Amino acid sequence: MAQPSRARRFSSAGLMIAVLLALLGFTLVVQLKTTSTDPTLAATREEDLVRISSDLDSRERRLRQDIEALEESQRQLRSGEQGRQAALEEATRRADELGILAGTLPAVGPGLEVRFSGPAKAVSSTRILDAVQELRGAGAEAMQIQGADGSAARIIASTYFVDGADGALVVDGRRLTGPFTIMVIGDPATMRTALNIPGGVVASVRDGGGNVTSEDREVVEVSQLHAPIKLDHARPVS
C-alpha cells in the first residue's frame, strides 16, 4: 500500500519542480527586460551602472544555478521513480514465476491435454512419472493430473507417484483413479513430439495394452494448488 502514495509524492515533487523552473525562467526574462527598458538608467552614474550590471550578472548566475539544480533534482526523481517501478515490476514477475513453479499460484496458457487409459500395468506410476519427465524436458511450465472422478493434484518438482490398490495412482498422498489426464502448459508441438519419440512414453503405454491421446489446447488452466512446504528451521532474511 506504500508504493502508490510514494509514487504520488514523487509525481507531486516533479510537478512542483516544473512550476519552479517556469517561475524562475519567467522572473529572469522579466527582470532583464525591465532593466533594459528602465528610463532612470539614462541618468545613472557610470560607477552605479557598473555595480547594477555586476549585481544583475550575479543574480542571473544564481538563477541559472538554481534552474540547473532543480532540473537535476527533477531528473533524479524521474530516474528514481522509474527505477523503483521497474524493480517492482521485475520482483512481481519473478514472484509469479516462482509461485507457478512451486504450485502455489494458478497458471493459464497454451498446452496439451494428455489422457492415459488402460490396465494398471500400462498406466503405472512409473509410466506416469516418465511422461512427466518427458514433458518437463520438452519445456512444460505447469502441470496437474486428475483422475476420473475429478480429483486433481498439482505436479511440482517434489511430487511423487506411487501405485495404489485396484489400479489407483497415489500422487503426493492423494488417491486418483483412472483414466488419468495431465493438463500441461507449454509448447504443444514440442511436448507432443517428446511423448511420441520411438520407445518413449506413448510406445511403452501401448506395449502394456493401454493408450495415450493428446489434444492441443489454446487455453489450459492449471488451477490445482500445492500447499506451501512448512519449514521447521529455515526462515527468510532481509
Rank of each mutant, 00 (worst) to 15 (best):
183 M>N: 00
232 D>G: 12
44 T>V: 14
195 L>T: 00
139 G>H: 05
19 V>R: 11
51 R>P: 00
151 S>T: 14
102 A>H: 07
188 P>T: 00
149 D>S: 14
11 S>W: 09
137 G>D: 01
131 A>D: 01
198 P>E: 11
169 L>E: 04
15 L>R: 15
148 A>P: 02
36 S>K: 09
16 M>A: 15
232 D>C: 01
124 S>C: 08
181 T>Y: 06
204 S>A: 12
109 G>E: 06
226 H>R: 14
209 G>C: 02
59 R>L: 12
34 T>I: 10
141 E>W: 02
237 V>M: 12
197 I>D: 06
173 G>E: 10
187 D>C: 04
232 D>K: 06
66 D>M: 12
171 V>C: 01
89 E>Y: 03
198 P>M: 03
11 S>F: 09
135 L>A: 04
192 R>W: 04
125 S>C: 05
148 A>S: 13
103 G>P: 05
218 E>P: 02
166 D>M: 12
94 R>G: 03
76 Q>H: 10
237 V>D: 07
3 Q>C: 09
147 G>L: 01
193 T>S: 07
145 I>P: 02
33 K>A: 13
95 A>V: 10
64 R>V: 15
82 Q>N: 09
206 R>M: 08
115 R>A: 02
140 A>P: 00
100 I>E: 06
199 G>T: 10
8 R>C: 05
51 R>C: 00
232 D>M: 10
104 T>G: 01
82 Q>K: 12
22 A>G: 13
203 A>E: 13
1 M>F: 10
39 P>D: 07
152 A>V: 10
94 R>T: 13
37 T>N: 10
212 V>R: 05
124 S>W: 01
8 R>E: 15
214 S>H: 08
224 Q>T: 14
147 G>T: 07
196 N>V: 05
234 A>S: 08
92 T>C: 04
234 A>N: 04
106 P>C: 07
225 L>P: 12
238 S>H: 12
140 A>V: 01
234 A>F: 05
25 G>R: 07
106 P>R: 04
17 I>R: 05
189 A>Q: 14
157 A>H: 11
50 V>D: 11
175 R>I: 13
236 P>T: 06
100 I>F: 03
60 E>A: 15
114 V>S: 03
197 I>L: 14
127 R>W: 01
26 F>I: 13
112 L>F: 00
65 Q>D: 11
202 V>A: 11
180 F>T: 01
